[in-house]
């Protein structure tokens, strides 16, 4: 149970950190001049890309494909 909790929290951290990196580093949506549509779509795109990357990485590691 302990390992599962730590793994889940780490996965959440990796997902959120990657999303935040893409949101701020690639889409630059955190800047003051950015309007809400840009913030919204950048957030969605960053989260989607982060989820796809980590789903692939976890699948590769744990499912061995």
């Amino acid at each position: 149970m302990f390992t599962l909790t730590v793994l889940t929290l780490t996965a959440l951290l990796l997902f959120l950190a990657t999303s935040a990196t893409l949101y701020m580093g690639v889409f630059k949506a955190h800047r003051e001049g950015a309007g809400w549509p840009r913030k919204l779509f950048s957030g969605l795109a960053a989260s989607a890309l982060s989820a796809i990357f980590w789903a692939g990485a976890y699948g590769y590691h744990y499912l061995g494909w």
Binding site: T10, L14, A17, A57, Y58, Y60
Partner: peptide, 18 residues
Amino acid sequence: LAMLMISIFSNNLAGAPN
């Protein structure tokens, strides 16, 4: 975030299956 990204793309760290 910059430190974290460099770390997980440098080493095979426990809990980060990259």
